[in-house]
Computed example of a mutant assay.
Amino acid sequence: MTATEPDLRSRWRGQPGRLEVWYTTITDPATGTGLWIHHELVAPGDGGEAWGHGWVAVFEPGAAPVLERFGPAPWDRPESGFVCGAVRYDGALAGRAGSVTWELASAGPDRTLFTFPRWAWQRELLPAAQVVPRPVARYSGVVRVGDRELVLRDAPGADARIYGHGNARRWGWLHADLGDGEVCEVVAAVSMRPGLNRLPPLPLVRFRLAGGDVPGDPLLASLGLRATLRDDGFDVRGRLGRRRLSIAVDLPAGETVEVDYQDPDGAPLLCRNSERATARIALADRSWALDGTAHAEVGGFRDIQI
């Protein structure tokens, strides 16, 4: 572990009805291949034994994505990170799921980007929160898909975390590496809490730019933004303070995976994810276009329209 150890270590303390997620997304600059490794700790709402599970997806350009699952396996409460059978995440990543194996190390600056306010993550005062402990990491190692081998050398990506009382009712997510150490992170979600579940998606947007992290308070800034979720992406429009913001995210039909899984209360979920998404981002007089290098997802409960 590194200086961000508190943001990578498991936060679960035995409470029922909790969800904890560690996920890593990577783009190989040499081949354009995207990689998604998703680890979950699920503590059922009925007080049953907690368990770990997850999946890995490989997005090779021009080919159907490969999705493989691991677990479930009993949670043995490791002191740090995530362990599920042969799969581990403790700052490095290693594991096997179906036809996919991986052994990866990461490097780069480790200053957490708080998509939600810092207090929301540290004090756990909201139903859930997401942070990015390693927003501009670089990954090296080997990923094997059957008899094919992908060697990563300083591939850009990020490690992110989620902790809370379960999944949102609907959500959209974006991680965009803007180059030169700059990133944009977006979580646009509808809460499951009664009353809040009738509101439109609340978009929390955080940039890490050369001049610092923008906006200062992403929750307060969300009041000036509006998000529209689609089954193939989402859009965010409005203002961050005095600066106009526009974000359009699209998941390519042939390079998107659908994943079925369950909330801690047992309700079925579906998410659509692509590590080869496109994103168009404009903030005041700056703009960025990502084609096949944006990491994005939309999801929600099975009984509603995403």
Rank of each mutant, 00 (worst) to 15 (best):
T4E: 14
R77M: 08
G95Q: 10
Q305C: 05
E124V: 10
W75D: 12
A160H: 09
G179V: 01
R206A: 14
G34L: 08
W102P: 01
I306A: 09
T115L: 13
G216W: 14
A294Q: 04
P74W: 10
R123H: 11
H53D: 13
S191D: 07
G14L: 07
R138L: 11
P194I: 10
A189H: 08
A73Q: 13
V132D: 09
P218R: 04
R286F: 00
G62F: 10
L93P: 01
Q305R: 13
P44F: 05
R243G: 08
A221D: 08
T115P: 02
V58P: 03
S99Y: 05
T115E: 12
Q122V: 14
G211I: 08
F114T: 07
D217N: 15
E49C: 04
G141L: 09
A97E: 08
R272D: 00
A92V: 14
A210D: 10
D28E: 09
A158V: 09
N167Y: 13
R153E: 13
D180P: 00
R161F: 09
R13F: 08
V132Q: 11
A107Q: 13
A277Q: 04
R123S: 10
E79Q: 12
T293M: 02
W12K: 02
G17Q: 00
V257G: 01
D76W: 12
L240Q: 07
G212Y: 12
V42K: 03
E182F: 02
E68I: 05
A189M: 11
Q262I: 01
P215Q: 06
V83C: 12
E49Q: 11
V100Q: 06
C184F: 02
S10Y: 05
G54K: 03
A296H: 03
W173N: 01
H175E: 00
A248C: 10
F59P: 03
P109D: 13
V205C: 02
A43H: 00
G48P: 05
V259Q: 10
A176H: 03
T27F: 03
L199A: 15
P200L: 11
S246I: 03
E60Q: 15
H295K: 11
G95N: 07
A120K: 05
L104P: 06
P203S: 05
W51R: 15
G299D: 08
V21G: 04
G299K: 02
A284H: 11
R208K: 11
T256V: 05
T228S: 15
G233E: 01
A248S: 14
F301M: 08
L225T: 03
G181T: 02
V214P: 10
V249N: 06
V186A: 02
R138S: 11
A97S: 11
E258A: 15
